[in-house]
């Protein structure tokens, strides 16, 4: 199982919540008490350890607010 994380640019997020519906691990949620400069709640990942870097959230994001970083293991046995 690959691992990684989603980098969400909170200032680009418009709070449409499409990524939350698309995430298969259900680890995304809207911010509760904080807002971005546009005045809307933004998407956040509350449990990065479960992110599989599947890219679903980034693919559906209409505002290109999400970058996906995959952790790649090099070397070892």
């Amino acid at each position: 199982m690959s691992r990684g994380r989603a980098e969400i640019d909170r200032e680009r997020c418009k709070g449409c919540t499409l990524c939350i519906g698309a995430c298969p691990e259900k680890i995304l949620a809207m911010s509760r008490d904080s807002f971005n400069r546009q005045g809307v709640p933004y998407a956040e990942c509350f449990d990065e350890s479960r992110c599989t870097a599947c890219m679903s959230c980034a693919i559906i994001c209409p505002d290109m607010a999400i970058r996906i970083i995959r952790l790649v293991t090099i070397g070892g046995e």
Partner: peptide
């Protein structure tokens, strides 16, 4: 050998 974990941007 020791495993090294590298970060790779896969979607931007």
């Amino acid at each position: 050998p020791v495993d090294t974990v590298q970060e790779k941007v896969v979607y931007e």
